[in-house]
């Protein structure tokens, strides 16, 4: 029979209770479903005739994303041209290492690669296959399996798909936030502003019908204020 009045036994019992409580807490922590805290972003820039001049916006956006993303996050930059659903359309992609120092090095390399692409760019594309680019980005975002998925679309949203390409399909953008940035107005939009609004509305509808969330930020400075990637 245990003598509970003995101080040593009482202390031992208290210790046992404490250990049991700690173990139970750890067990509860372990049983809880792990939350995915990682983020993934895909920057899709249009290099067609009408938008190629806005390349600097893509560089600024990439730098902003590099400063916001941290260890374990993923980032990729791709471009929209005549046919966008190919691996060659990805300029750079990276998943940052768990160590902050290594992640910093990866960011430097990534930045150099994107800057190199911008500097070496010469000929704009004739067509702009936006759907192909979105499909490419969607595949990448699905592949990295992040908790938050963002697709940044730098384009005038004027799709001009070559006749040989079949792009009438579902995008399947579930859990992806599509952010249209710097949607430039075309000359025809000046003549008929309704066209511009219709274009935006059709893309918004298309994204939301495919399970995605739509946002539009025309000014880069507002991106931070809107709390994207926070």
């Amino acid at each position: 029979m245990i003598d509970v009045t003995n101080p040593k036994i009482r202390v031992a019992l208290q210790g046992l209770r404490l250990i049991t409580a700690v173990l139970l807490s750890l067990l509860l922590f372990g049983c809880a479903e792990p939350t995915n805290h990682s983020r993934a972003a895909f920057v899709l820039m249009d290099i067609s005739d009408s938008y190629a001049a806005e390349r600097d916006q893509a560089r600024r956006l990439t730098n902003y994303l590099l400063s916001q993303l941290d260890t374990g996050d993923s980032l990729a930059v791709g471009f929209i041209d005549n046919s966008s659903f190919t691996e060659r359309n990805i300029v750079a992609q990276v998943t940052f290492d768990e160590r902050p120092s290594v992640a910093s090095q990866q960011k430097r390399v990534f930045q150099r690669r994107v800057t190199g692409f911008m500097e070496n760019f010469q000929t704009p594309s004739y067509h702009s296959d936006i759907t192909g680019g979105v499909l490419l980005a969607r595949d990448y975002l699905e592949q990295v399996d992040a908790g938050e998925k963002h697709l940044f679309l730098l384009s005038d949203l004027h799709e001009d798909v070559p006749p040989r390409l079949e792009r009438d399909m579902k995008l399947n953008l579930s859990d992806v936030q599509v952010v249209a940035i710097n949607v430039k107005r075309q000359r025809s939009d000046n003549e008929n502003p309704q066209e511009y609004e219709q274009r935006l509305a059709s893309w918004e509808k298309r994204v939301e019908e495919n399970g995605g969330r739509w946002a539009m930020v025309n000014n880069m400075e507002r991106l931070e204020k809107r709390g994207v990637l926070r």
């Binding site: 809880a32 939350t35 941290d70 260890t71 374990g72 768990e98 160590r99 902050p100 120092s101």
Partner: peptide, 16 residues
């Protein structure tokens, strides 16, 4: 806290 991420990794979480 910040340099600790170098030792135990910056992307692992316990709870939140």
């Amino acid at each position: 806290a910040m340099p600790m991420a170098e030792m135990v990794g910056g992307n692992s979480y316990i709870g939140s």
